[in-house]
């Protein structure tokens, strides 16, 4: 018994010592999507500054698959020594339990939250010829024409799919859903007037809105975005209950020592305060979390509330990827 206690103490000391000298070698940040997507871009921008703070490089490893759950599963099962962390997002840590019944991790329990990185707001866009010019007209049209309208999305489990379902639930409409493989082809058909509307991240649609190829009705955030200053928020346009942005956040596997988590969290906060990092994120139309939203505790609360928010919406729409 004594022996065990001693061993435990020794391990405790060892981890404390480890935390003091952490990090000694490069840290792997698993991004559960292919390189080049919004989450990957944010991870690389934030990771770049965090590397400078920590004095060790953060290597981005893209492990794509199954809506991001492949990469997160691997990261969750990695050694909790601070050398494997991950960039999770609204899908992997919010919608996944509803979408994937066989999910091998629990977003609320299996992670040590580090902090929120940046989010990208959702914009409601429609084809150029759509017979409505503002959100109110759009919602009214949807209510009377329901199934005649085609909603495009970028595949089951994608941000545009989830937020589209959420929007339809808020507006209480049931359009015909048309799936695409990725945002690009969906936007192409939206511009060609083949499909009617979609909801997607601002970074994907802003250039087309500015170019006049599609029309935008509202942005689903509390405040207007500097990238599209003329676009009203959903609340301003008269729609309550549809506020959503695709958030991205850094997590470590459960059991990561608090000292290491603190070092990572501090580095993340420092990155979010850095002028050039902020500028790069804002250029993307990103939303940077303010002081209180950045703490690990706030992230834990966010994950819990997101799981609670998405599960009923997605289950009601029958969206699972079994």
């Amino acid at each position: 018994m004594k022996k065990i206690a001693l061993t435990l103490a020794a391990i405790g000391l060892a981890t404390a010592a480890q935390a003091q000298t952490y990090p000694q070698r490069p840290i792997t940040m698993i991004v559960p999507f292919a390189a080049g997507g919004p989450t990957d871009v944010i991870a690389r921008i934030v990771g770049d500054h965090m590397s400078r703070t920590l004095g060790q490089q953060i290597v981005i490893e893209n492990v794509a698959g199954a809506g991001g759950t492949t990469g997160i599963t691997r990261a969750a099962q990695a050694q909790a020594d601070g050398y494997t962390i991950m960039m999770g997002h609204m899908g992997t840590h919010g919608a996944a339990p509803a979408l994937y019944p066989n999910l091998k991790y629990d977003p609320t329990k299996d992670f040590a939250p580090i902090g929120l990185a940046a989010g990208t707001p959702i914009v409601i866009v429609a084809k150029k010829d759509f017979p409505a010019n503002d959100l109110k007209g759009f919602v009214d049209y949807m209510k009377t024409n329901g199934e005649k309208v085609n909603m495009a999305h970028a595949g089951v489990g994608s941000v545009s799919h989830m937020t589209g379902i959420f929007f339809n639930a808020v507006v209480k409409t049931k359009p015909t859903m048309v799936a695409y493989r990725g945002t690009g082809p969906a936007l192409n058909d939206l511009m060609a007037n083949t499909v009617d509307y979609m909801t997607d991240q601002i970074v994907n649609v802003a250039p087309q809105i500015q170019g006049g190829n599609i029309k935008a009705f509202a942005i689903a955030t509390a405040e207007r975005s500097p990238a599209l200053p003329n676009l009203p928020t959903t609340k301003e346009a008269g729609l309550d209950g549809f506020e959503v942005s695709a958030w991205n956040a850094v997590f470590a596997p459960k059991g990561t020592s608090p000292e290491i988590a603190k070092k990572l969290s501090d580095a993340l906060v420092k990155a979010l305060d850095d002028e050039s990092t902020r500028k790069r994120l804002l250029d993307l139309g990103g939303v940077i979390p303010s002081g209180a939203e950045r703490s690990p505790e706030a992230l834990q609360k966010l994950v819990e509330s997101e799981v609670a928010r998405w599960t009923p919406v997605l289950k009601a729409a029958g969206a699972t990827a079994e």
């Binding site: 997507g37 871009v41 690009g184 087309q208």
Partner: peptide
């Protein structure tokens, strides 16, 4: 609009450098 996966990667590369591809 990226027509294929390679071009989607180029979009990612552009956005990382602060250029949002578009008209």
């Amino acid at each position: 609009i990226p027509p294929n996966a390679v071009m989607a990667l180029m979009v990612g590369a552009m956005t990382i450098h602060g250029i949002v591809p578009g008209p």
